[in-house]
Design a protein around this nucleic acid. Sequence first.
DNA 1: CGCCAACTTGATGGCTGTCAAGTCAGGTGG
DNA 2: CCACCTGACTTGACAGCCATCAAGTTGGCG
Lengths: 255, 255
Amino acid sequence: MQIATVTKIAPRNAAIARVMQPDPECHRVTCSSCNLRELCLTGGLCPADLLRVEKIVHARRRIKRGEVLFNAGESFHSVYAVRTGFFKSSVIDNDGREQVTGFFMGGELLGMEGIGSGQVNATATALEDSEVCVMPFSLIEEMSHEIRALQRQLHAVLAREIVRDHGVMMLLGSMRAEERLAVFLLNLSQRFTARGYSPSEFYLRMTREEIGSYLGLKLETVSRVFSRFQEQGLVAVQQKFIRITDIPGLRKAMT
Amino acid sequence: MQIATVTKIAPRNAAIARVMQPDPECHRVTCSSCNLRELCLTGGLCPADLLRVEKIVHARRRIKRGEVLFNAGESFHSVYAVRTGFFKSSVIDNDGREQVTGFFMGGELLGMEGIGSGQVNATATALEDSEVCVMPFSLIEEMSHEIRALQRQLHAVLAREIVRDHGVMMLLGSMRAEERLAVFLLNLSQRFTARGYSPSEFYLRMTREEIGSYLGLKLETVSRVFSRFQEQGLVAVQQKFIRITDIPGLRKAMT
DNA sequence: CGCCAACTTGATGGCTGTCAAGTCAGGTGG
DNA sequence: CCACCTGACTTGACAGCCATCAAGTTGGCG
């Protein structure tokens, strides 16, 4: 299938491409050599600090598609950075209703909600075979004591999560189905772009139901809106493979 | 009007009552003497630390009802703790649609979203005459370097904000109007209780439209649901004065 | 006293949910 | 290699919840 190759095209950003030389052993992957470091907790650190901070990556862990990285209710001790793969995080209410609260790709951090209460309040599930860096939070706190830039980045990451959530609240609270899906697709597009992938072609790792949960819609509605977008020539949809054919048009649909 | 007296009944919690002696001058109010300190950034600090941390309250500021504490787009330098009064925070999208992202009462912190980007992403508006403690964020970072408990509390406050937002996402994404309003009322009730006020009687500082914006509903729907709750004997509504007459019933309505 | 913002209530319509049937793609086993 | 099976997706018909539009009420304030 050509889809697999299409979704993982060569990075466009020269700066990212430069550091992308895979270490052949892939045994001791360091933050310094990680192409995602600027998107991660290590963003904005100088090389000297980076070398010290690498120690916070206590381990790496592989999660197979469908497996759970952490479960609501477990005691909190680590946050996780996505190295490769794709995750969803979700919360379940007393009725058993699931609400997907976010999707996470390379460089993004998972599990920070746990900081407050000592126990994680969400479940993180891999949507494809993935690998994460395990960072014990006690180590992060320790080290952010010594390294001002890390402290700053930690606060920035937490605050950006809040801003992101407010964006979702706006979406859920006052947008119609087409606007929601347009926002969703453009957001994905932008995040893929930041990682050196195509802004207009990508593979959706999540099901229609998961998209619907995230956007406050039923899966049938998601499907219908995809079809409508296709009729309007905004996107080409083939199951999970998406080609955005008219980005300005989608932006207008986002209104 | 007896409403005013009803809403501000005597604190039930003896511990809170003890520290509630108002200093007559009200000139130099310290965190140590603030009855909200456990709900605030100073939560969990030992008396010794508390004395040092008090310096982060750089100033106090009075905001009249309807006035804005900070506006989206302003550059970020401080977070604010509500001392007295009531605030809403909201974001406006490109279309001018407002989404209320939260309501804030005594001891709660406003403006933390700004940490990430150097500029605040929300607008905070006083819903009644209010007073806030202004805490320059650079001072907080400085001091959380020295005082481990403060650092921990800062992280906890940020993380709790994220958890709170996820709760709202669940509400907006998968609950029906009655469930949303029930959750909203019970949440208010619980927060008033934590501050020593009545769990069952309070005065809504916000309009139906603001409630609606927060809950992803139109003001007419909010009004109708209030009426329905009243018919069912769950609450007694008199404009902005709310009496919850059947808390278990409301909990069931929350499903 | 009168104005105005906030609120309530009614009538109607539309967006999205629900229920149902059918299609598609991938994986397994014969 | 093909048939079959299953989960994911699409599409249609219909219903219900909530939005919209509109009119009237209440309460606060000048």
